[in-house]
């Protein structure tokens, strides 16, 4: 399980980083999304992987088997913030396309 998650994090981070370094705005926005997934998983992984241990204090639940709730709340915050960032970036992207006439991140058609 740990290995699969680690590979998942690695692939998401690699594709994300590669895309945010690309010159087209849409590539960057997709890259940010992928990178966010990687980072969120990474944060969750810092609480170790726990199966069947949702931190819900139901009757008879044993708190010692719980997954760490702290990384979870951090990730929840992260999801919200990255949603805001995506929305803002999208609008900036559209406005920039309208003003500069190109979808290059630096407003020109140069470089790969």
């Amino acid at each position: 399980m740990e290995i699969v998650v680690a590979i998942g994090i690695g692939v998401l981070a690699t594709t994300g980083v590669y895309l945010i370094l690309r010159p087209r705005t849409f590539q960057v926005i997709i890259g940010l999304s992928l990178l966010t997934y990687a980072v969120n998983l990474f944060i969750l992984a810092m609480g170790r992987l726990v199966v069947d241990g949702a931190p819900l204090l139901t009757e008879g639940a044993d708190p010692s088997t719980f997954a760490d709730p702290v990384p979870q709340s951090l990730v929840l915050t992260s999801i919200v913030i990255s949603f805001s960032m995506t929305a803002l970036f999208l609008v900036v992207l559209l406005a920039a396309r309208g003003i500069t006439g190109t979808d290059h991140v630096d407003g020109d058609g140069m470089s790969a």
């Binding site: 290995i3 680690a6 690695g10 981070a13 370094l21 990687a38 990474f42 992987l49």
Partner: peptide, 19 residues
Amino acid sequence: LVLALIAGGGMATLALAAM
């Protein structure tokens, strides 16, 4: 791509080491 691979590989290794 090289930088992305290093970054991604690093994150994966770090995550695995912690987990």
